[in-house]
Computed example of a mutant assay.
Amino acid sequence: MLYFDGILIDIPTVKTMASCCDGNCAAEALREKQRGTLIKVLVINALMFVVIVIAAWYGKSTALLSDSLDNLGDAITYGLSLFAVSRSSGTKARVALFKGGLILAASLAVVAQIVHRLMVPVLPSYEIMSIFSMAGLAANGLCLYLLWRHRDEDINMSSVFECSRNDIASNLSVVIAAAGVWLFDNLWPDIIVASLLALLLLISSVRVIRGALIELRQP
């Protein structure tokens, strides 16, 4: 303790308060960085959804449609993650659980489209598939780069990173499907790739849901 101008000052207490302030400041700085990154990837994915869903409809590609649904799911996911940034770990886990449900819903939507395409077969446009899957690959590559540093920070950001990594696989798969349609002049490469993407989304949803449930069980 120290007397200064008639006031008793507890030096250890002052140091502890300063330390707490530093900790809070560091946590807030981290949250601000997360918010900034999430806003950027949210805008990118929302724009890419609009562009690719129009291209999928015009090009009659099921694989490209699944790619666009992935972008829509990600845009919603990033919005939810933005909401959860400054919330408790329990809230983040519940948001991650909801994200897992969205990914599962996207996989089921792709399966429904596959069934429809099998019943009403149409040859997709490999040119449109190639152009817009490459555009999506560039956009999602940028998102993955922005999210890379946040991938292990908490359940909220790790689930976001999981979604972005799925997008890269999705884009590459559509490029392969476009090459298959061009080479064989057949819709089956599009159907096969769309089926694999639906499976990828299903596996990803299980992984995100499992991680969220584990987090929720922790005291």
Rank of each mutant, 00 (worst) to 15 (best):
F98V: 13
G36H: 03
A96K: 13
S88N: 07
D74P: 00
V115M: 08
I203Q: 07
G6Y: 04
K92P: 05
E127F: 09
W188V: 02
F184K: 06
K40E: 11
L42M: 04
S19G: 00
I155M: 10
S164P: 02
G101Q: 13
L65F: 08
D10S: 12
K33W: 00
V53R: 14
M1A: 13
M157C: 12
V110R: 02
A177L: 07
L97A: 12
C20A: 13
V53W: 05
A178F: 07
W148V: 02
I176R: 04
R87F: 09
M134D: 08
L202D: 07
G59K: 04
L64Y: 08
Y58F: 12
L144N: 09
L213C: 14
L123S: 02
F4C: 00
I39V: 11
L146W: 01
A169K: 11
I9S: 03
L202W: 15
I103P: 03
L118T: 01
H150I: 05
K99N: 09
R217F: 07
L216R: 08
T77N: 15
L102V: 15
T13G: 05
P12R: 00
R31W: 09
V50I: 06
D22A: 12
S170F: 13
N186H: 08
P121S: 04
S205A: 15
L118C: 09
I168R: 01
K15H: 01
Q34W: 00
I128E: 10
S125P: 08
A106L: 12
I39N: 08
Y58W: 13
N140F: 06
G211P: 01
M157L: 14
I103G: 11
N24L: 14
V115T: 08
F132S: 02
V110P: 04
R117C: 03
I11R: 05
S158Q: 15
I128G: 11
L8H: 11
R35C: 04
L146P: 00
S81M: 05
L199T: 12
L123C: 06
S125H: 08
D74Q: 11
L102Q: 09
W148I: 02
A27P: 00
Y58T: 05
S81N: 07
S88R: 04
V51I: 12
I131F: 01
T62E: 01
A139Y: 01
D154Y: 04
I39C: 04
S61N: 02
V14T: 03
L64M: 12
A105L: 13
R31S: 11
G36D: 09
D70I: 07
F49E: 15
I9H: 07
I114H: 01
R217W: 06
R35P: 00
V181W: 09
M48C: 05
L30R: 03
A84D: 13
N140W: 04
G79Y: 10
L197Q: 09
A178W: 06
P189Y: 03
A138Q: 04
V110T: 15
A138S: 10
A109S: 15
N156T: 11
S173H: 05
G100Q: 15
S170T: 15
A179Y: 02
V181S: 09
V50K: 12
K60N: 10
D185Y: 02
G6D: 10
V85N: 12
